[in-house]
Amino acid sequence: MSAPAASSATQVPARGRTAGRGATFARVVASEWTKLTSLRSSFLLAAATVAVSWALTYVSANASSVDPGFDPLSSLTSGLVLSPLGLMILGVLVGTGEFSTGTFRSTFTAVPRRLPVLAAQVVVTAAFALVVALLAVGAAVLGIVPAAGSREINLDLTGDGTPLVLAGMTLYLAGMALFGLAVGALLRHSARAVVTAVTVTLVLPIVLMLASDLSTDPMAPAESGPPPAEAVVNTIVTLLPSGAGSLMTTPDISGIEGAPDLGPWGGGAVLGAWILVPLAGAAVRLRARDVT
């Protein structure tokens, strides 16, 4: 338009070309980390996870400390009924956050290949959740200390498979964050994804257990093994994310009655499938369809 315009006209494209290598995977991970750690909800859910883990374990250990054969270590996993929920919802929010808010427009115009964003979300969610899981497991250990003290029992966390239990707890908790992420990334809608994830992990097992309790006749003679209906219910419950994850924390218990004995590794593999299958669906949806 004006005279100086012509002189500077040639500089611009050059500036564009010389700048960086664009959206490398490491950069996308850094970006997703900034996003995850810049939301209050992430830290609130992390704090809730740790607090629930401590509180439930403390209460449960105290309650059973009056039993004659009290073993404080057996209370370690009692927080896991609820503590995975916080991390699971944290994962859901990472997965849905882009779409429930419109952030996806700025995200996917910066990273048009899209899949690196999902992969980066897996990386940062896993890292964040692992730290929180370690804190939550630490809190569970602190939770059993008073009860152990009251019975003058020395806590030994190194013996008798306890390290495996602690590792299993950590992985179960972190895995549930990834399960939440996968469901969130697939469904893209926070309320829908939270309801789905909570239903699958918490509501379904309870409903199934209640239904099978009601349908079995307590007066029937206990023949060899549980009745078929109960076996089916137990199998399903074991194969749900929470059931499979719990197996990771009970290395020396051979599953529940009638359910296949998967062991901690098998449980981990089933939980892994609960993460990978919806994640694959999310990846296909992200890659093949318009983002709107």
Binding site: S31, T34, F104, R105, T107, A110
Partner: peptide, 25 residues
Amino acid sequence: LDARSVHPGRTAFRHLLAQARTHGI
């Protein structure tokens, strides 16, 4: 495209920083 391309819970600075980091800006 749309001013509502931001997470309402994130500060303006963090939003821009997250965008910038994808390109090492």
